[in-house]
Design a binder for these strands. Structure first.
Length: 1016
RNA sequence: GCCCGGGUGGCGGAAUAGGUAGACGCGCAGGACUUAAAAUCCUGUUCCCUUUGCGGGAGUACGGGUUCGAUUCCCGUCCCAGGCACCA
């Protein structure tokens, strides 16, 4: 083929790569690993425009480059497939979201395939696949069964907390919790199950939280803070109001400090780190109590970062939502305060924000300023937020702008206590002096101290007076984890009749079919109307609630209580470790045995005495065991034998099968079990027995998880996507570790990127991961705008479709051009004419290998000049890819091609290595030419060429000669020419003399290999 | 208002340790090949003055500073994009 026929070439090689599974990757301990990841796309129906693949192309180039350099590269792709658009579409059309999603994924995949990416598609994951969300549910279970210990700074099992409560109550623990509660062990023991669960809920990392949520009536769901922009929903722009609601939340605040600290260990842009720091909003200060005069309530506690200004605290302000506000007011003022508070509470965010004038009401009460001992009035105002700090502040109008405005609005005293170090402060103040530098005055024992020291001393004083303590506060709130929607992961949770949540152990809990996808409008998910799914018999499930106080005997978790007197710790522990991971065979059999399918009730992992049976039917005393190959060694034979004797003494019949039998034909095994069951069942039919089983009513959680649930850990699943017994094997997690390079948009700064870090730290605490940051290096690609300077969108009619570009110019040209457009991280407009240049370049490059119609590569020995061109290009391209400077890399290819074209160089020793350099950028064209060179293996398995500096050394340098910094002439000198010699030659030069205009020489600077500057 | 980026030809952009500003590409102008077109190739292209050539001057948002030398470092101002926004 003498002409560059891109469409033929691209089609051909894309097929070939699939056939040979070129990009399939497995763990290989002999090679260093590299994990290159693109941000999880949501497969929308709209298809891609040319802005979308920008990051994919960059990460693909790096992936290919790393492979050529001997790395074992994990480069996967998958879909964040749960979410609102598919569901909204379902509401409108009745089409199941799974179908829409499937169609969209097919389109998306076709588009990606056209562009020649090197993804290992055997690792594809989809969040809406039960085999995937099984593990999302499982991780939720881990959050539910853990609490955060601030002393050891990690998550710990809730059982340990319960043991602590049993032993000494709540003293001696420092835990992340919703509110501080104190009790001793007797109090704990006397509490009933509901009360105990309420306490545990206060500690669980997944817990039920009553909060003010962003309620969007139009979408019928609760939205996260980052999904609300300027008081309306980010998606659709519908109004959002605040509403109290109970729903699941994750205690991300427990990790606030570590989320800030961890930022120092990762290579992300400063701006994203800064956004996360702001979002977490850590501030150091103190909590201080102010005594209330003549009131039942003893004191009001405030949080302040400026305890140094306490002498200037002239009034207090409470949030309208402040707890006990009404009780606190004086009788005369109560009516007015309640009226004000009610009005403030019902106003939307947008109203509150647009307010310029401060509003408020006086409570009729006074506090005592603990430092001045003077009474100060207590007010209520909506400029104080209930959710931050204690919901109350000490107002220091002289040194806080907001307090200053409030004081002016209500004529409250303003007493300055800080002044600039070297000047006086102007009184009366025209504006608050909020600067954090200055010295204290009017401040008793703090007088003369600078702010920083005064803060320290004030806190010390507060602590010795026992009226407060040092305290760190965060803006970050616990993350709401419930959505009242259909198309998301169901919670593996069933509430019993006392509303105590229990985890379902048999996962996945699959999403049931529903009639209508419409939200109910009363704040409940569409799932709530599927009563046959919602209402269940708890006895049909293996549940998990690791509280030993559960009254009902339910599954394995009562082992501690049920252990017989002859309780053998060693054996039971052994059994517990053995049973941890159900085998695939057990999973399969459970599907055939569960829910009375054989007419009797089987339980799984049932403790009997001090053993744990794989499956047991208690009513007919039958135990079914499944053995893997482990059981063939001597030690376990003895163990099995002892166990059999023991259980037979208790009157159980034991039947055993090999796992391999199940794998071969599970139904056959089922039938054999059924025979035994029937032989043991007394004559009345199984149906009758079932009817006789007492029902234990339960109700499923009907909310589903938010979109970010599945995307918070997907990068771990890629490491071992088909694992049925673990979310990913230890082996895979330890090999692939962190994502080395993560490419995606910056719009996920406070969502996905924060949550992923949180989940990673949590899983690290539990010992699943040996790293605690998910993404080592993060690169944010810029946006590509339309040619008209507008955002590229259907609305402006300026969308450029990558399919069209591929059809007209080929994928290699598209890839190269997207990179050539400018720095990856910059936003820049698309320019349709510009692509011609890149297209022309590829044609020129192709013709380097041809002379007219004929293949012209020859085996001649290259000249020094040609070798220099090659090696300088190797050096440049290598540096550019390492530094993600792809636009300059493309330009370097153009330069090399122009130079070699000029020299009419057709030499194999030059062109072959050059081809490898270009392979990551233009994988199809290079593969074709590589084959034409006679290579039988793919170019993408070749070796990256090494730079040989010896071809780059120059023996002379053309010095720019400048007079007073202006370049006037160029003079060539050998590289090793002495400075003195250069000086001499330069000063003797005619042009130089002319420019010196007879002025005396002041100085001459010679920088070897750089420049000469003559100063006159 | 606060925080973080960034301002270089007609356009996208380059200058990877403070050392020849404008690489590479687009666009534009002129030319070669051709009956013609396409394709390809060659030349020029920061601005201003001079213009036949040779030259000269200014110039990296603006104003200062450090330096032999600043697009690069420092201070101030303006503008643009992004983030946060009553978080005490």
């Amino acid at each position: 083929m003498s002409k560059y026929e891109f469409s033929e070439i691209e089609k051909k090689w894309q097929q070939k790569w699939v056939e040979t599974q070129l990009y399939k990757v497995e763990i290989d301990p002999a090679k260093p690993k590299f994990y290159a990841l693109d941000m999880f796309p949501y497969p929308s129906g709209a298809g891609l425009h040319v802005g979308h693949p920008l990051g994919y192309i960059a990460s693909d180039i790096v992936s290919r480059y790393k492979r050529l350099n001997g790395y074992n590269v994990l480069h996967p792709m998958g879909y964040d497939a749960f979410g609102l658009p598919a569901e909204q579409y379902a509401i409108q059309t009745g089409q199941h979201p799974a179908i829409t999603t499937e169609n969209n994924i097919a389109t998306f995949r076709r588009q990606l395939d056209t562009m020649g990416f090197s993804y290992d598609w055997s690792r594809e994951v989809r969040t809406c696949d039960p085999n995937y969300y099984k593990w999302t549910q499982w991780i939720f279970g881990l959050f539910f069964t853990h609490w955060y210990d601030k002393d050891s700074n990690k998550a710990r099992p809730i059982e340990e907390l319960i043991q602590h409560f049993e032993a000494v109550g709540s003293t001696g623990i420092s835990a992340a919790q919703s509110e501080e509660i104190l009790f001793d062990s007797n109090t704990w023991k006397q509490k009933n199950a509901v009360e105990k669960e309420a306490i545990l809920n206060n500690f669980r990392l997944a817990f039920i939280n009553e909060t003010t949520v962003n309620w969007c009536a139009e979408l019928g769901t609760v939205l996260a803070n980052e999904e609300v922009v300027n008081g309306v929903s980010e998606r659709g722009g519908h109004p959002v109001v605040r509403k109290k609601m109970k729903q699941w939340a994750l205690r991300i605040t427990a990790y606030a400090d570590r989320l800030i600290e961890g930022l120092n260990t990762i290579e992300w842009t400063d701006s994203i780190k800064e956004i996360q720091r702001n979002w977490i909003g850590r501030s150091e200060g103190a909590e201080i109590q102010f005594e209330i005069e003549n009131s039942e309530a003893a004191f009001i506690e405030v949080f302040t970062t400026r305890p140094d200004t306490i002498f200037g605290a002239t009034f207090m302000v409470l949030a309208p939502e402040y707890e006990g506000l009404a009780a606190l007011c004086s009788d005369e003022q109560r009516g007015a305060v309640i009226q004000y508070a009610d009005r403030a509470k019902n106003r939307s965010e947008i109203d509150r924000m647009s307010d310029t004038q401060k509003t408020g009401a006086f409570t009729g009460r006074y506090c005592v300023n603990p430092f001045t001992q003077k009474p100060i009035p207590v007010w209520v105002s909506d400029y104080v937020l209930a959710g931050y700090g204690t919901g109350a502040i000490m107002a220091v109008p002289a040194h806080d702008e907001r307090d200053f405005e409030f004081a002016n609005a209500f004529n409250l005293p303003i007493i300055p206590v800080i002044k600039p170090e070297n000047s006086e402060i102007e009184i009366p103040l025209k504006e608050a002096y909020a600067a954090k530098d200055g010295v204290c005055f009017n401040s008793g024992f703090l007088d003369g101290l600078v702010v920083k020291e005064a803060v320290k001393k004030a806190i010390e004083k507060v602590e010795t007076l026992a009226i407060g303590k040092r305290k760190i506060n965060y803006k970050l709130r616990d993350a709401g984890f419930g959505r009242q929607r259909y198309w998301g992961e169901p919670f593996p949770v069933i509430f019993d009749e006392n509303n105590i949540p229990n985890l379902v152990k048999d996962l996945p809990v699959e999403l049931p079919k529903v009639e209508s996808y419409k939200p109910t409008g009363n704040g409940e998910s569409p799932l709530a109307s599927v009563s046959e799914w919602v209402n269940v018999d708890l006895d049909d499930f293996t549940l998990f609630n690791p509280s030993p106080f559960m009254e009902r005997g339910r599954g394995e978790d009562n082992i501690l209580n049920e252990a017989p007197p002859e309780y053998d710790n060693k054996n039971l522990d052994y059994a517990k470790t053995m049973r941890q991971d159900p085998t695939a065979a057990e999973e399969k059999m459970w599907d055939l045995l569960r829910n009375n399918q054989l007419g009797v009730k089987f339980k799984r992992q049932q403790p009997i005495g001090n053993y744990i049976a794989d499956f047991a039917c208690l009513s007919i005393k039958l135990i079914v065991e499944f053995d893997g190959s482990v059981h063939s060694n001597e030690e376990s034979k003895i163990y099995d034998e002892t166990r059999k004797n023991y259980l037979e003494e208790l009157g159980y019949k034991i039947i055993r099968f090999w796992n391999s039998e199940v794998e071969k034909d599970a139904y056959n095994v089922r039938d054999r079990i059924l025979q035994v069951v029937q032989s043991l069942t007394p004559s009345p039919s199984p149906q009758v027995e079932r009817g006789a089983t007492p029902k234990t009513p339960g109700r499923r959680e009907t909310d589903t998880m938010p979109g970010w649930a599945g995307s918070s850990w997907y990068f771990l699943r890629y490491m071992d996507p088909n694992n049925e017994t673990e979310f990913a094997s230890k082996n895979a997690l330890d090999y692939w570790k962190q994502v080395d390079l993560y490419v995606g948009g910056s719009e996920h700064a406070t969502g996905h990127l924060l949550y992923s870090r949180f989940w990673t730290k949590f899983l690290h605490d539990l010992g699943y991961l040996n790293f605690d940051e998910p993404f080592k290096k993060l690169v944010n690609q810029g946006m590509i705008g339309g040619e008209d300077g507008q955002k590229m969108s259907k609305r402006w009619g300026n969308v450029v479709n990558p399919d069209d570009v591929c059809n007209n110019y080929g994928a290699d040209t598209l890839r190269l051009y997207e990179m050539f457009l400018g720095p990856l991280t910059d936003s820049k407009p698309w320019n349709t004419h510009g692509i011609e240049g890149v297209s022309r370049f590829l044609g020129k490059f192709w013709r380097l290998f041809y002379d007219g119609e004929t293949w012209a590569v020859n085996p001649e020995t290259p000249s020094a000049e040609e070798l220099k061109i090659l090696h300088k290009t190797i050096k440049k391209i290598t540096w550019d890819i390492d530094n993600m400077s792809f636009n300059t890399a493309v330009s370097a290819f153009m330069v090399a091609t122009n130079e070699l074209g000029q020299l009419k160089c057709k030499k194999r020793d030059i062109l072959e290595p050059l081809l490898v350099l270009l392979a990551p950028f233009a994988p199809h064209l290079t593969e074709e030419l590589w084959q034409n060179l006679g290579n039988t293996e793919s170019i993408h398995l070749a070796q990256w060429p090494a730079v040989d500096e010896k071809y780059l050394v120059e023996n002379s340098f053309l010095y720019p000669i400048s007079i007073n910094g202006k370049t006037r002439k160029q003079m060539e000198f050998a590289v090793d020419t002495e400075i003195a010699e250069i000086e001499k030659a330069v000063l003797a030069d005619e042009t130089v003399i002319k420019w010196m205009e007879g002025k005396p020489l002041k100085k001459i600077i010679v920088v070897k290999g750089r420049i000469v500057n003559v100063v006159v």
